[in-house]
Design a protein around this nucleic acid. Structure first.
Length: 821
DNA sequence: CTTTTGGAA
């Protein structure tokens, strides 16, 4: 293999065909590549398990009895990972057996690959030099060894395989490696295995993932490839994972996949990351807030170790893995850390400290089509193109349509079905399948069922199909070029959710979805000129979100000077300051800006700072309503909505009737409390209870997991004693005043008063806000003098979501306390 | 009169 290629990403080699994208770290960075199909299957399995559709999942019954005092809680949650799925076999991220020679390279290229991959001879040579994996573990059962040896062949065909030795060499020389690996390169599974027997690798290797399902399925795959036990199957297991609700690591764990949030949580206890010899940060191009924080912490830590000012004396190896070819931003980012050390204003030769590596991926070519004219109505344009494809192109070949949201999806679904009815009976049929996160799990699963004979699937999806779900069998992508984006306006304390044009990198990502299994085509519902005007990158989340949580995370980990934290993209100073004030108002910071005891407690709770503050408030003796508030916070923390969203008028009335005993006149929060408590009290058949009440079983299972975790966490923070839990009886009526005033303490700025014209105006900023139609308070004839709400969201207008009625004097009291007026 | 998508001892 050529050394020069290794050190230099082949930027020059791809000039014309390369779609511009080279500003990660300096400008914007965002997702582009995705997982292999096999992994997607695993994701489906895990997803299925997570959402709890599988009948085999058993949840712990509610704790009416005394719960054993928790020293070391043993597996608080069901073992999702071992649930047998329809296809338990996890495939590698790419399917090399299907791409013998004609695959094109990378989603951004339409032309075939010319000799980037090493030839067979080189590959053989690499194998010889490396030899078969050592089989010193004779106690490992034969079936694991057999599986490992079978998988070895597949591993050797991965594009990353020949890079093994260079990667090892680079990391011996330098502590930091920036690795670009395109879709299907195999980096996530192979890199940890390349490093595990290095001389410096005396401890564990951590690999972070943005999503839980990915962490679990990758860990399972790597265990198989290594011929090792997995997770906590055996104390000898060398591969494990750690995600929320599920820690499967043991004393022998050498390779540990974990979510980004989990690593951050570990940093809280162990800022020097002493348990690790290496940290591999995967999927950096997705630029989640957590990944940005991790990169900042790592840069600080590595620089301190280098300087000798850290308590840690052993080196920490860091591998940054991204799907985008833009290494320079990341290299410069880390080089700055070293430059600061040496007191130099400019970077010394960055290459002396930081290595680079580029690994090609595996993708089939995808042909792009644009509209000749801009379209006013892209739902209609999509409809036309669906049928155009259907008439013109032979089966098989499913169509994936990217739309903005549920309403558009349902609209187009109906249109497709209507027009399909009028088709010639001889024609292949069309099967329209919606796909969005709020869709019940069962309906989501339909995209994985085999296509019926003589039928073409049309999957109508949100951007869930961009990263989270890999839809199989897609040969045609239709991309409307828009997606809904959440943006936080820190000045107004308001979030907006609006459809905006996607970035070029997102458009490329969507297009790539057509080239996973065979050459494909992508129809963009806009003109080529429009494409050229798109932003290069999706704005990183850290520039779009409320920074309160990120800053508390930093403060709790010893970063006091937040304004000088090494951000890959630095948010505006005003937003940072606004978040600092917010934390001060919540009592998480002292006046000098350092973290308070309360702030530390909040940082240890797995909820947003506002919700954490509410829990602490409820624990105060004056309020003494923590258990009830935990129930409410659990319901607020789940991503799925508890109450099914009913469409038709009759169903709406039926739901209203069925939920009558849950609804509370005080508002949504106490309605949640009643729902959680009744669900928890239901001991015979919770699923049936949910069906009767038009409540989402999946959401409630999630709520119960969070509730359990919060109860445990509150115990270890000494907010709850085992005695509290034992004397609990949900028959006693809740102290609603205490609950609502506790909520107010966290949601100080989420309050509004009734104006003479019948509208609500926020206390802070005097903005008009409407009660969201999903609230039980929506459309009330008698309005309360003031409201508190959990979310403040602008869509068609500014809405208050999850709303409770409160007394004016309560609001005034809490404002005095928070603002010190 | 309504809901992009991930994530947390």
């Amino acid at each position: 293999m050529s050394k020069s290629k290794f050190e230099n990403p082949p930027a020059a080699a791809e000039s014309e065909t390369r779609e511009p994208e080279s500003t990660l770290g300096t400008k914007r960075g965002r997702k582009r590549k995705r997982k292999g199909n096999g992994q997607a299957d695993a994701e489906v399995i895990e997803e299925n398990a997570k959402k709890g559709t599988g009948k085999s999942i058993k949840f712990d019954e509610p704790t009416q009895h005394v719960e054993a005092p928790i020293e070391k809680p043993e597996e608080p949650t069901p073992k999702l990972k071992t649930i047998p799925g329809p296809k338990p076999q996890v495939e590698p991220k790419s399917q090399p057996q299907q791409t013998p020679h004609e695959s094109a390279k990378g989603p951004k290229k339409d032309k075939p690959d010319h000799g980037q991959r090493p030839n067979e001879k080189q590959r053989k040579k690499n194998l010889e030099s490396r030899g078969p994996p050592p089989s010193r573990n004779s106690h490992v059962p034969p079936h694991l060894v057999k599986k490992r040896d079978e998988l070895l062949q597949t591993r050797q065909t991965l594009p990353i395989w020949p890079h093994a030795d260079p990667i090892r060499e680079r990391l011996r020389k330098n502590n930091i490696l920036v690795l670009t690996g395109e879709t299907g390169s195999g980096k996530s599974t192979q890199v940890p295995q390349f490093l595990i027997s290095e001389p410096w690798c005396t401890k564990t290797i951590a690999i972070t993932q943005p999503r839980r399902v990915a962490a679990i399925s990758l860990a399972r795959r790597v265990a198989e490839e290594m011929g090792s036990y997995f997770g906590n199957q055996s104390p000898a297991a060398k591969v494990g994972y750690s995600v929320r609700f599920d820690n499967a690591t043991g004393p022998s764990t050498k390779v540990k996949f974990l979510t980004e949030g989990m690593l951050l949580q570990e940093v809280l206890r162990d800022p020097d990351m002493n348990q690790y010899s290496a940290v591999v940060v995967d999927e950096v191009h997705e630029r989640s807030v957590n990944v940005d924080l991790i990169l900042g912490f790592l840069r600080n830590l590595v620089a301190e170790i280098e300087k000798g000012s850290s308590r840690r004396k052993q080196p920490l190896k860091v591998v940054i893995m991204s799907a985008t070819a833009d290494v320079e931003g990341l290299v410069n980012f880390f080089a700055e850390g070293f430059a600061k050390n040496s007191g130099q204003p400019a970077l010394p030769e960055a290459d002396k400290f930081i290595s680079k590596c580029f690994v090609e991926g595996r993708q089939y070519p995808v042909k792009t089509h644009y509209l000749p004219q801009p379209s006013m109505d892209w739902v209609e344009s999509a409809l036309k193109i669906i049928f155009q494809i259907h008439y013109k192109e032979p089966l098989p070949g499913d169509i994936l349509v990217f739309l903005t949201g549920q309403d558009k999806i349902e609209g187009l679904e109906k249109l497709v079905n209507d027009y399909a009815e009028g088709m010639d009976k001889e024609m292949p049929k069309l099967l329209a399948l919606p796909l969005f996160a709020a869709l019940p799990q069962q309906a989501q699963q339909r995209i994985f069922q085999p296509t019926p004979r003589h039928t073409r699937k049309v999957i109508l999806a949100t951007n869930i199909a961009e990263t989270s779900v890999t839809v199989p069998g897609v040969q045609f992508v239709i991309d409307c070029g828009k997606s809904k984006i959440k943006q936080f306006r820190s000045r107004l304390g308001l979030e907006s959710l609006l459809a905006k044009s996607v970035s070029k990198s997102a458009a490329i990502q969507r297009k790539g979805r057509a080239g996973r299994e065979a050459p494909g085509q992508c129809y963009r519902l806009y003109t080529e000129a429009d494409y050229k005007t798109l932003e290069e990158r999706t704005t990183p989340e850290i520039l779009r979100c409320d920074l309160v949580q990120a800053i508390l995370t930093m403060k709790a980990r010893g970063v006091n000077d937040v304004l000088n934290f090494p951000f890959l993209d630095k948010p505006p100073v005003e937003s940072l300051k606004e978040a600092l004030f917010q934390l001060l108002r919540l009592g998480a910071l002292k006046a000098d800006g350092t973290i308070s005891d309360m702030g530390l407690q909040m940082a240890k709770l797995p909820v947003t700072p506002k919700l954490g503050r509410i829990l602490l408030e409820a624990a105060r003796p004056e309020k003494d309503c923590l258990l009830d508030v935990i129930d409410i916070i659990s319901a607020l923390s789940t991503e799925d909505s508890i109450f099914f969203n009913v469409v038709t008028e009759e169903k709406k009335e039926a739901a209203e009737e069925a939920r009558r005993d849950l609804y509370r006149r005080e508002g949504d929060h106490l309605t949640f409390l009643a729902t959680v408590q009744q669900y928890a009290d239901e001991e015979t058949d919770r699923r049936a209870w949910c069906d009767r009440h038009f409540v989402s079983h999946r959401a409630m299972q999630n709520v119960m997991n969070i509730r359990k975790q919060l109860r445990q966490q509150c115990q270890s923070l000494k907010l709850l004693t085992p005695a509290d839990l034992s004397k609990e009886s949900s028959s006693s009526s809740p102290n609603t005043d205490a609950i609502l005033t506790s909520l107010l303490r966290g949601f100080v700025s989420n309050t509004a008063r009734l104006a003479p014209d019948g509208s609500y105006k926020t206390f802070v900023g005097n903005h008009t806000v409407s009660v969201h139609p999903s609230s039980v308070l929506h459309g009330r004839k008698v309005k309360s003098e003031a409201i508190v709400f959990s979310e403040f969201l602008y869509t068609n207008k500014a809405y208050a979501k999850k709303v409770s009625a409160v007394q004016m004097n309560w609001v005034e009291d809490v404002m005095k306390e928070a603002f010190g007026i």
